[in-house]
Design a protein around this nucleic acid. Structure first.
Length: 261
DNA sequence: AGTACCACCTGACGGC
DNA sequence: TGCCGTCAGGTGGTAC
């Protein structure tokens, strides 16, 4: 799930469910996903409230106070779940925040590829990770500048978090599909017009995905995401969707609509 | 600079 | 039924 649109949906969920509620305790069920002693998490959270939240790229920050933020990174299988009764607890709740009102907020994650981290400065965290600008904050000149100097495939450039924060395997495919650009195209070979179209579709896909609650079932037939499988057919031309490894990740595209530049 | 692997983890799925 | 290989929407490291 968790690319920019998914994480933005998690952020809104967190705001809706867990803001301004006093925290009673923290239950960390797996220490692989934390980077400091459990006691530090308890100390940072107990009797505090989440005042606000921020998202940068695929990272979510719960703000509990000045220099007191909890960063959630979701890996490939993470999500948040707010619940009351323990029978409603998701199967892989690894990090549980318990509120005085009896509810819990769980950071659920089947695979342990992810992290929940105490962060004093969000800005400092972003700098340390060397993240590029958040994909939704981009403007065309900046996008041209970021993509322009690259010599690799456009797909790998879109997914590179140090270049642009927030786009992963699924949405890079979707953006390229809607822009009708082949994922294996070399950045150098793209024309200015291509980059402009790509930029427009980057914004459009991410924003609309958020409107669809990052839920593929809600997305229209004209999106690749609804056909993104080995048996899928292009919603535009009906030709079979092709898949190919590009920069180590399986990419899906329409070989007819997305000619290589 | 870019790429090709490997690693970290768990679980679902298909083939035999 | 059970075992096995493969694959999965992320990131980080190493080696070429």
């Amino acid at each position: 799930m968790p690319e920019l649109p998914d994480v933005e949906i998690f952020r809104r969920y967190l705001n809706r469910k867990a803001l301004n509620k006093k925290i009673k305790d923290v239950d960390i069920k797996n220490s692989k996903i934390i980077s400091a002693a459990k006691t530090k998490y308890v100390k940072a959270l107990r009797n505090k409230k989440i005042n606000s939240s921020k998202r940068y790229g695929k990272y979510l920050f719960a703000e509990l106070g000045k220099k007191n933020n909890l960063m959630f990174h979701f890996g490939m299988t993470g999500f948040l779940k707010y619940f009351k009764n323990l029978e409603a607890e998701p199967q892989h709740g690894r990090f549980l925040i318990k509120f005085y009102n009896g509810y819990y907020l769980a950071w659920n994650n089947q695979r342990l590829l992810g992290e929940v981290k105490l962060v004093d400065s969000i800005k400092g965290f972003i700098e340390k990770k060397n993240l590029g600008p958040d994909a939704l904050s981009l403007n065309l000149p900046l996008f041209e500048k970021l993509i322009g100097g690259k010599t690799g495939s456009i797909k790998s450039a879109l997914m590179k978090q140090e270049l642009i924060a927030g786009v992963g395997n699924i949405y890079s495919d979707e953006i390229l599909y809607q822009a009708k650009i082949n994922p294996a195209s070399n950045c150098k070979k793209l024309k200015n017009k291509d980059i402009e179209i790509l930029f427009e579709n980057l914004k459009k896909v991410l924003k609309e995905a958020i409107k669809y609650k990052a839920d593929p079932d809600k997305m229209p037939d004209s999106w690749l995401l609804t056909h993104r499988s080995k048996e899928g057919r292009c919603g535009r031309c009906g030709k079979g969707i092709k898949h190919q490894k590009i920069s180590g990740r399986t990419s899906y595209f329409c070989p007819r609509c997305q000619k290589k530049s």
